[in-house]
Design a protein around this nucleic acid. Sequence first.
DNA 1: ACGTTCATGACAAAGATTGTCACTATTATC
DNA 2: GATAATAGTGACAATCTTTGTCATGAACGT
Lengths: 316, 316
Amino acid sequence: MSKSKRLLELMMTVNRKRKFTVKELAQEFGVSTRTMLRDLQELSELGVPLYSEVGPHGGYQVLKERILPPIAFTEEEAVAMFFAVHALRHYSSLPFESESVSALEKFYLHMSGDVRDRIDQMKNRVDFVTPTRQRESPHLPILLEAAVRQKVLLIEYESKGEGACRHIQPIGIYANNGLWFCPAYCFLRRQFRVFRCDRIHSAAYDEGGTAPLDLRHVHLGNKESCFRTEEGPSIRLYAELSRQGVQMCEAALWLGSHLHIREDGSGWLEGPVPGSDLAFYARFFVGLGNEATVKEPPELIDSMKRLFAELMAKYE
Amino acid sequence: MSKSKRLLELMMTVNRKRKFTVKELAQEFGVSTRTMLRDLQELSELGVPLYSEVGPHGGYQVLKERILPPIAFTEEEAVAMFFAVHALRHYSSLPFESESVSALEKFYLHMSGDVRDRIDQMKNRVDFVTPTRQRESPHLPILLEAAVRQKVLLIEYESKGEGACRHIQPIGIYANNGLWFCPAYCFLRRQFRVFRCDRIHSAAYDEGGTAPLDLRHVHLGNKESCFRTEEGPSIRLYAELSRQGVQMCEAALWLGSHLHIREDGSGWLEGPVPGSDLAFYARFFVGLGNEATVKEPPELIDSMKRLFAELMAKYE
DNA sequence: ACGTTCATGACAAAGATTGTCACTATTATC
DNA sequence: GATAATAGTGACAATCTTTGTCATGAACGT
């Protein structure tokens, strides 16, 4: 094998094993230890952050920086990656230690000139917007780690304006619309609940010995099944929508599959909804004003009327 | 310079210049053409997709794939990049030809084992959610290109349920909450307008000769200044909010800086709003129900009362 | 027909690489 | 304190690679 190829393979090998001895690698590559030492030194000069310690149990180590071996990206791919990472700048809090910024700089600097030109041209013309929120979520890393390592946390949570301590076992974290959420098992309520991370005022591993549940199979992709159990009996909903009503409902994501659209742009809402949510739906349909006409269930219409009455009274 | 180093530099050089001749590079690197040929062949064997053509105006070319030279990323950076790109999967339409997916695969495959393990552990525990929309936006690439190249487009736009043709000059595109928007100058209205990309049914470069404006200085970062001109006279708004009202308003981003929060969790909305938007605000406050109490302006209260009356009539 | 360009082969000189050996230094462990 | 494991350095000759030069061919546009 030529030296150049050996060096490239070596680069990947040392990144795979984090720790190794000269002898070990020398045998693996079929060269003498002297040569391997020379190769390692050359790698070091090429920018791989190697660190060595002598003595028994010593050896070589790659420091936390790791070389990403040469990857063939198409221009489109590189550009897409750039903007994906660029979008992270909208988040005031991230579960990764805000190092994504430096990653982007490195990525950008290593791009060839014309890709860089292309990115520059597009920089202010494409964006993945996420609303920037004022409140920060400082505990994302520990929440994430607890989810990965199946640990119980003791958190201080602001709920309805009051603080309270709870034991929770996170199953993950996700960002939505600029806010971070943490679905978790709540040992207080004995239920799965979603917590807003910016309302978590403190978080620490529970030392009290609350036994963690085995939630390895529960993750963001299938958490819905755990939440579904709490729903009450469902009631059939039916409402007519004007064209503008359809557009307004399109923005409301939780309606999901209940929305049906006709050829002419108008549409209707139809489907089962949990009875416990009636108050919520009442408020929603009141907000739609004339663009929606609720036909069923009658309870919902009553609920809406009550709301009108209260509001009328308030503003008279 | 040693051969290994030369090869690495050569890798970057051929990526910078897309097209080059052997002689040219040989001179640049101070070696004979024979050596350069041998180097290029070796590069080819190492995976750089080189392609050559003989004859005058021939020469070497790098195919669209380009090698990203080795970059030193920290583990955190690599993970952050992964999840950033991973988040793009929520978009049913992208201005890049959906190649981001393959980029992610390559990236993932080239990671060293333990980073890959770390990603695997976190894969279902972290997410940047974007609501998936049913309607696609197939014209993103041409909108983006028109923005970059300062071209006028002729589009077919669905507005209030009806289709209509318009000449527009895009200043960029952005995704928000799963939908793509295109702020652009509209030659029909002689104003800057924001278009929803999934309502653009067709888009093509204008052949009619509408002269493009010089909008090079206008981009996503400063477009607000162009839109501001159309606002009507502004009216002072003031509304009291209960604790729950505050939380509901936090979700409404366009309120922005108008929202003020008290120690106890309740709060108030205060600030100038464009008079033309009164109908919109009326509907919004009706939707907040008892959690908000509008104090000013009286026009808004009137507007809300009218809305109540209409709705009462409808459901009686 | 000519010039440009890639492509390949041969070969000897120059240069880089390699293995071996001898030696030093550090440090954990017994 | 001895021992073994480990990195690190220097020297040197054998060997292998790399390099430049030259010759030759093939494709292709002008």
